[in-house]
Design a protein around this nucleic acid. Sequence first.
DNA 1: GTCTATAGGCAGATAGAC
DNA 2: GTCTATCTGCCTATAGAC
Lengths: 200, 200
Amino acid sequence: MSRLVMALQRAKRENRTSERILDIAERLVQTRGFNNFSYADIAKELGITTASLHYHFRGKAELGQALITRYAERFGDALDRIDAEIPDPRAKLEAYAGLYGGVLEGKRMCMCGVLAAEYQTLPGPMRRAVIGFFDENQRWLAGVLKQGRTDKTLAYTGSPDEVAQSILSTLEGAMLVARPYGDLARFNSTADQLLAGLTP
Amino acid sequence: MSRLVMALQRAKRENRTSERILDIAERLVQTRGFNNFSYADIAKELGITTASLHYHFRGKAELGQALITRYAERFGDALDRIDAEIPDPRAKLEAYAGLYGGVLEGKRMCMCGVLAAEYQTLPGPMRRAVIGFFDENQRWLAGVLKQGRTDKTLAYTGSPDEVAQSILSTLEGAMLVARPYGDLARFNSTADQLLAGLTP
DNA sequence: GTCTATAGGCAGATAGAC
DNA sequence: GTCTATCTGCCTATAGAC
């Protein structure tokens, strides 16, 4: 076996472990918050030691950054798929709300929503990544809203940016409040009312 | 000085310290989250030791309960004042949103909104208190919405309870998202749109 | 990549003196 | 009511062997 193949396999193996770490940490952040889980929690679930975790991520701050980066990438991919598959602006917004509803199952909520609640305790790079996630969401929503106003499939007063901020805030809040009740219907009700308010 | 007077003074002095502890802890919860501050933080700011804090509150869980109880009482008092001073349903909702906006200054957000984000890490009594706060808010909002529908000053589709849930969720989310941006205008914009959607 | 061993710090909490 | 002293446990992180 060539040196190259072995190097690739090693990279793949390492990558798989890194991804598993991120998977576990992601769930822990979304259910408990960034400051309310430890390397020990991840290590135990993964069956390795905390020392090994430091090989993959120098420290918890770096892990946190990687978490948001991957989360934002995946979310961006999901938005790209919506753009590719759904032409109608209203249906796009329904699909967008559906993304959030899906997260709420498993007692999770939006990772960046959780991080926003403990924003003041986060290291600088994580703060900027959270803001970046919100900005990207609002940019996408504003685009959909502009399209809807142009083709008259959506109606709203005020600027697309303001309404985009409002949609994001409402869905984040709906997740935040619905989760303690363990009630997905509560989230869906608020999402439905939000979309109904955009009917021409 | 009589024994009774001395006892009252002692109670008052203790009460004052307890209240100061609650004041500091309240600010810390609202800015950092319940799990992201310590007895040492409070003790340092108050100029006493952590051991003394345990005299006033047996443990952090009891402190947390007391925090929510006092917060909910004060919020209930504010709602009573709105009821007493403002007859118009729409103006009541504006005042209600104003309560939230006021909290956002000082980089705080609604205490129970923060606690909802770390809900799964809270002891049982605190969880129930958070739910109780939300329920009380929704009950009050539903009452205002019913009144508004009756006297035709507010218009909405769906049940008052559903719309009440939606209003609460939207305002909580607006605080959550606006705070990282340090932008009160962002909150006000969403609140304004929310109320505009209830115009007959 | 993963381990053992360990450092150094901070957490919540308690006993007992004053 | 507040203190000193102390405990136990958990946390992040590192050094160095395999």
